[in-house]
């Protein structure tokens, strides 16, 4: 019961904080497509396009990193590894998931940044690539876990039957297991996207937080989440700026909500079939 209450509560509170402003003075078109985010200028501009673009770029890079790594890890742990090796890998993956996001931020800032800077000869190593890699590594463990669960849900008898035909383990995975686990794997990607998308502190620290739409992975960028975190402290309570940040929060909430619903629907849809 409490969960529903909180979900509804979150929606209502965030909605109510931003609604008055959103109704009266905010143009949705400007918010979505305006390319200048200058909430403290006079007159203030609330075009969130740079943030949306930054979020999309960074999430995309994160998935390019996370999908191959997490699926490979899930297939290796679920299908190839045995006994002790398997237990150890699972423990390490869990530890990876346990590293707090602010620590990832420090790694992005102090370790990854300088590395990227010198490898690619950039002015700043805090960019889309940095944030994307960090987010990819952060999202990978949960994706690995979900993907492995999806593989585990494929009955062992299928593997046994296919191997009895002389299929190698890889042929079994490719021809039988992956086909059967596809909905679970899509759900893993979706939840990974949700995770990368909603991450705040690490991105704020690793992305360089530049309020412009990035043109390449080497540009600094800002995300919706990071902008809220960076500006909420400075915005006057109940002022326009404060309220627009709540509107952004509502947008985030709705997007992650639909991602989760979609993932849930995909997994359940399979169970029914």
């Amino acid at each position: 019961m409490s969960a529903i209450l909180f979900i509804a509560g979150i929606f209502l509170f965030i909605g109510s904080q931003g609604m008055e402003f959103a109704w009266n003075r905010l143009s949705i078109t400007e918010l979505l497509f305006g390319d200048r985010w200058e909430p403290t200028a006079d007159p203030p501009r609330y075009g969130a396009w740079p943030l949306i673009a930054g979020t999309a770029w960074i999430t995309a890079v994160a998935m390019l990193v996370a999908v191959p790594l997490s699926f490979a890890a899930a297939i290796y742990v679920g299908e190839f590894a045995k006994g002790k090796q398997r237990e150890w890998l699972k423990v390490l993956i869990e530890l990876l998931a346990a590293i707090p996001s602010v620590v990832w931020g420090v790694i992005g800032l102090q370790v990854m940044g300088p590395i990227l800077q010198s490898v690619f000869g950039l002015q700043s190593g805090l960019n889309v690539l940095n944030a994307g890699i960090i987010l990819g590594l952060m999202a990978a463990p949960i994706m690995t876990t979900i993907a492995e669960d999806a593989l585990k849900a494929v009955p062992e008898s299928y593997r046994e039957a296919a191997e009895a035909l002389g299929a190698t383990r890889w042929q079994v995975v490719r021809k039988v297991v992956l086909a059967h686990a596809r909905p679970g794997l899509s759900a893993a990607v979706l939840l990974g996207i949700g995770r990368a998308f909603g991450e705040t502190i690490a991105v704020l620290m690793a992305s360089g937080h530049r309020l412009m739409p990035p043109g390449s992975v080497f540009d600094s960028a800002a995300t919706i989440t990071a902008t809220i975190a960076a500006e909420l402290g400075e915005a006057a309570v109940d002022g326009d700026h404060y309220q627009v940040l709540f509107v952004l929060g509502l947008v985030l909430f709705l997007i992650t909500f639909s991602i989760n619903l979609l993932a849930d629907w995909i997994v359940r849809g399979r169970r029914r079939a």
Partner: peptide, 25 residues
């Protein structure tokens, strides 16, 4: 089913949105 769904979604809400909720509520 609705409660389970809410739990799954609550787990997926970005932490910054929780922060906004905390401030508001």
């Amino acid at each position: 089913r609705l409660i389970n769904l809410a739990i799954v979604n609550l787990a997926g809400v970005p932490s910054i949105v929780h922060a906004l909720f905390g401030v508001g509520a």
